[in-house]
Write a protein that binds this DNA or RNA. Structure first.
Lengths: 225, 225
DNA sequence: GTTTTTAATTTTGAATTCATTATTCGGTCA
DNA sequence: TGACCGAATAATGAATTCAAAATTAAAAAC
């Protein structure tokens, strides 16, 4: 690690933004759930000031909804919102592919290949949680390799909304196998540094995920009727 | 106007976010300029609490940079940042075009045509300020017509960074004329509801703007040497 | 006269306080 | 019993306060 890198001491509100975002994305709160300032302050050991600053930032990211005089709630993930989010994210994925093919280093490719193989193993072992983590690692490594902080920032913001949706329904075995196959193609395009193909694959991969998610949600709500 | 629409009374920090963003985008502050909390509080007539909340939101949007214990500064618009921003925005513009062609109403097209004609007049009269406003109206109307709030939100955030760049250098007469021609094509594609073409035109229009801006900045910095 | 050190002032981050607005709970009346 | 009203309680929004850090000003040393 670079020892001469500037030291960044995060302020309380930054720390809280990160922690709360993680908690929301990782489903520690129910969507629509009220966020009680008091008890959160107690558990974090901070006063309301930095917590409220953090909530306002998260609201601007769309993870939290503020209603004047009625406090804050975790934003709900509606099907409409997903239908709006996926195409935007897919547009960014295409750009990610184009840039990454140009800029990615051999070391980054090697790392992604390693994570890819781990992911395939987790799939064979049907370890959904480990699979999910490896999958996540691969996608963020690719986004990172595009070397565009702005792109990464907006991608992350949108992806965090999508990520929450995975708690709405389980992925089917068929789709899971298909996703693995798509990932193999993505890795191949990456190794070929074929930007146009990589962009198309990444974008399609995401839209396929969306279609599968929609089917799964349909199924869930149908079953509930 | 819809009289039965829910009443939204913005909180102080929301109001401040909007006002400060406007001030930054419209160049009321120098890039890199220190933002003095005290005097801003005085001029807005609010306490530091809501102002600081607003600054944190603007920092998450990238318009403001917070340095721990050293307060906040207006973010600078570096050439590198612009080089990162334009391609992302162009990717979103392409999607805007595709969606807008499907979803735009005849009334919206009529409004854009009206603003387009005004913009052409302003160009003839060499009224840069009025031209800029009409141009801005057209672009936001198109984005709005794509009917995707997420897309609009991210587009707006990126566009506000780009918008600040116009104060870095004046546009050339050649580029101005070319922009008008591109706008005519955009309007035609809109009226034809040709999504693929509209997306490509919007994306190219933006990247041409970027190229022109880069040339202009080069010129400025060369002249300064 | 310039640089360094030290003290005063200002600015910042975060806790606390206060006024206002919701919510809850208990009682009244149909 | 259950809908309605009002007091008590809790929560929220925003101002104020306080401690720590940075900046400025002043004094001392070279």
């Amino acid at each position: 690690m670079n020892l001469s890198a500037p030291i960044h001491r995060p302020s309380l509100h930054e720390e809280l933004v990160d922690r709360l975002r993680e908690m929301i994305v990782e489903d520690h709160f129910q969507p629509g759930e009220k966020i009680p300032e008091k008890s959160l302050c107690d558990s974090f050991g901070v006063s309301r000031t930095p917590l409220r600053e953090a909530l306002k930032v998260l609201a601007s990211e769309g993870l939290v909804v503020l209603t004047p005089n009625r406090g804050s709630r975790v934003a709900t993930v509606t099907p409409e919102e997903l239908a709006n989010t996926f195409p935007v994210l897919a547009a960014l994925e295409r750009l990610v592919g184009e840039l990454s093919a140009e800029r990615i280093s051999e070391a980054e490719i090697a790392h992604i290949r390693e994570r890819h193989e781990a992911m395939v193993r987790h799939h064979k072992e049907r370890d959904r949680s480990a699979y999910f983590t490896a999958n996540q690692d691969i996608h963020s490594a690719i986004v990172r390799s595009a070397a565009n902080p702005l792109l990464e920032q907006h991608h992350t913001a949108l992806a965090s909304r999508v990520r929450r949706a995975r708690f709405m329904a389980n992925i089917s075995d068929d789709r899971w196998a298909q996703a693995i196959a798509e990932h193999a193609e993505i890795l191949a395009a990456l190794e070929d540094r074929d930007g146009a193909r990589l962009g198309a694959l990444l974008s399609n991969h995401l839209m396929n995920k969306f279609a599968a998610l929609q089917r799964a949600i349909e199924g869930v709500s149908d079953a509930a009727e």
